[in-house]
């Protein structure tokens, strides 16, 4: 598509454009990392914005004084739990919806993705406290599953639609029940789809703020709440806040870097197909 000599200039311009845009989009992250290594005094001094003296005090203090390790652990438990259970419920459902064209159910799942989360908060809190489940991983995982499961189904329906049904048929001929054909034959070839949907589901759970705000307590407080709480009853400690922000975003950013292929597929797959 791209031509020869006269196109050289335009190719160069394209590169400049793309990389400049990229730079703009990465700037806030750069700024966050930079500030997380600064002391309060350095942050307040706007005349030398790029002066840093690699200073880990902000990080040391958030781990030592504010037990961020515990919050990271909480976020992992909830994220992984919500993803695994989301898969267990979501995969068979997506398969059946895809195979039997149950569009009504598909719509119901879509609605779950659409409804504003804030509508659940009051009822959930009342139900979960009646069950003594406030400040437990169970309530957090259940609530986060309402984010992960519909998403998994949403990504997996088109994926399953694209799989050849002959495979299942031949497994059935071998004497497998449909569930076992599903688990033994269909799931193994769905690896990429499952990886895609799980990674994104995990990220959504990790990032969720609203549900944990109401359902978590001191034992199960997830990172977003902990970071927000950091704006506490003392003056605004920008260095600490940015160190906390780095801590919370680093895992998802790393995940995104390593699994980018799957993430792009997940975000774009459902919409490009068709």
């Amino acid at each position: 598509m791209s031509g020869k000599k006269p196109k050289k200039l335009s190719a160069a311009l394209t590169h400049v454009g793309v990389y400049f845009a990229l730079f703009l989009f990465l700037l806030p992250f750069l700024w966050m990392v930079l500030a997380s290594f600064k002391t309060q005094v350095q942050i307040l001094n706007t005349s030398k914005i790029f002066e840093i003296t690699a200073n880990f005090n902000n990080y040391i203090s958030i781990f030592k004084e504010y037990s961020f390790l515990q919050f990271i652990w909480n976020s992992f438990v909830v994220g992984i739990g919500a993803t695994i259970f989301g898969l267990i419920l979501g995969l068979p459902a997506a398969y059946a919806i895809a195979k039997y064209k149950q569009q009504g159910l598909g719509l119901l799942i879509l609605v779950a993705r659409i409804v504003p989360g804030i509508s659940f908060l009051i009822p959930w809190f009342i139900i979960f406290s009646k069950l003594h489940l406030i400040d437990t991983y169970t309530s957090l995982i259940l609530s986060h599953m309402l984010v992960t499961m519909p998403f998994i189904i949403w990504v997996m329906i088109p994926f399953f639609e694209g799989l050849p049904h002959e495979l299942e048929e031949s497994a059935r001929v071998d004497g497998c029940s449909i569930p076992s054909a599903f688990v033994r034959v269909m799931l193994p070839i769905s690896g990429p789809g499952i990886v895609t949907s799980s990674i994104l589901a995990f990220i959504f759970s990790w990032n969720n703020f609203m549900f944990s705000l109401i359902l978590a307590g001191d034992n199960t407080k997830t990172l977003p709440i902990a970071v927000f709480n950091f704006i506490s009853y003392s003056d605004i400690n920008w260095g600490g806040l940015m160190a906390a922000s780095v801590t919370i975003t680093a895992p998802v950013l790393l995940l995104a870097l390593f699994a980018q292929r799957y993430i792009i597929a997940g975000l774009t797959g459902g919409s490009v197909k068709g």
């Binding site: 927000f228 919370i248 975003t249 998802v252």
Partner: peptide, 13 residues
């Protein structure tokens, strides 16, 4: 890959 970062970063942060 790098363009992915803004959308996966935690909104509160």
């Amino acid at each position: 890959t790098l363009f992915l970062l803004p959308m996966v970063a935690t909104p509160v942060a």
